[in-house]
């Protein structure tokens, strides 16, 4: 063995900061979820158009997913350049596939 692996356990301050960040993300996710469900209840009662609610829902989902990825999955942290790159490529392919299949399965395009 060349050397014992080096690492540093998180300190008290760091942990406190992280813990409050994660708690905020958790609360924010709950708020976003309630907003999404609320919008749908509102729409069912005729308060908003379906098209608007769909766009709103997708927006909320993207924000909440970003919370998950950047904060909880530590994508924002240092040393995550490669994971970020592949995350973005994954998003690119995802968008291409969903839009492609959605537009080109039942109807002809133009």
């Amino acid at each position: 063995m060349a050397a014992e692996p080096m690492f540093s356990p998180s300190g008290e301050r760091e942990t406190k900061k992280e813990r409050s960040l994660h708690t905020v993300a958790f609360l924010a996710s709950i708020v976003l979820t309630i907003l999404a469900f609320g919008a749908v209840v509102y729409a069912i009662e005729g308060g908003a158009s379906a098209g608007f609610v769909v766009a709103f829902l997708v927006g909320l989902a993207v924000v909440q997913a970003a919370f998950q990825a950047y904060i909880w999955m530590h994508l924002k942290d240092e040393g995550h350049a490669v994971p970020q790159l592949f995350f973005y490529v994954g998003v690119y392919v995802t968008v291409v596939i969903v839009i492609g299949i959605l537009l080109m399965s039942w109807w002809t395009v133009a």
């Binding site: 979820t33 999404a36 469900f37 749908v40 729409a43 069912i44 829902l57 997708v58 909320l60 989902a61």
Partner: peptide, 11 residues
Amino acid sequence: FSVVYLMGKVA
């Protein structure tokens, strides 16, 4: 939950 359930309820 957004795309399947909520949108399914709306659209």
